[in-house]
């Protein structure tokens, strides 16, 4: 807008011109409003709940930490972080998600599921294979980085006294997944359950 449009007359004295580069943060014309009254009960309570919720979530299994161990300095703070025994073991109902999430998730691998009666037999036979396989796996994990090393997830395992609330479907049987999954990962080992005929024919990509 021109000076005329602003209604400034010619020759009128304008506010003092600023000399030099303008301040990045010019002084505020209006400050933020101060709350008029003391915080009321509701507001105080909301604050408490918020902080508690936040703390809970950060210590919960849902807070995913990067898996890398920090070999350098053992920080003092490490001692006081709740040694989440759940770290790396996400305890949810995997049947309610797309299968690939449980297959590929390292966390889900360590899942021991609840066996149903009908599968008890199957389970026993699998057990041996599985526990050996798992041991080997665990060793492997220790030495390898996460990338590229993914084994099929779900195995019916013997309940290690670790039962969980959420029922896992017993159809989390070992299946090699789709070809897509297989082709993506270089699986040197495939723990195909021989009793499981279901070699799924997935689409080839």
């Amino acid at each position: 807008m021109t000076y005329e449009q602003l209604g400034v007359q010619k020759g009128e004295v304008l506010p003092e011109r600023v000399v030099g580069p303008p301040e990045t943060y010019p002084p505020l014309e209006f400050r933020p409003v101060q709350p008029a009254q003391e915080k009321n009960l509701a507001e105080s309570y909301l604050l408490v709940v918020k902080k508690e919720f936040r703390e809970h979530m950060q210590n919960s299994q849902y807070y995913i930490h990067p898996g890398v161990k920090r070999p350098d300095i053992e920080r003092y703070s490490d001692r006081y972080q709740l040694l989440a025994s759940h770290r790396g073991q996400l305890n949810i109902n995997w049947s309610r998600c797309p299968k690939e999430l449980s297959h590929s998730s390292a966390a889900a691998k360590k899942r021991k599921s609840w066996t149903k009666k009908t599968d008890a037999k199957k389970a026993k036979v699998k057990d041996l294979n599985v526990s050996e396989a798992l041991e080997a796996l665990q060793k492997k994990e220790e030495t390898q980085t996460k990338e590229g090393v993914e084994e099929e997830g779900e195995e019916e395992g013997k309940p290690e006294g670790e039962e969980i609330e959420e029922l896992e479907e017993d159809d989390e049987e070992l299946d090699e997944g789709t070809d897509y999954v297989n082709n993506y990962f270089d699986n040197g080992d495939s723990y195909i359950d021989e009793e499981d005929d279901a070699l799924e024919e997935g689409g080839v990509f």
């Binding site: 995913i64 996400l90 949810i92 999430l101 996460k146 897509y180 689409g203």
Partner: peptide
């Protein structure tokens, strides 16, 4: 890594923050 992303997605699904649908046959 694949495993971490899966975990993350599982968490998000668990907390009703992510949904899925069939993007390609049998692939969500």
């Amino acid at each position: 890594p694949y495993s971490k992303v899966s975990e993350a997605l599982a968490v998000l699904v668990q907390h009703n923050l992510v949904t899925w649908e069939e993007w390609r046959p049998q692939i969500p």
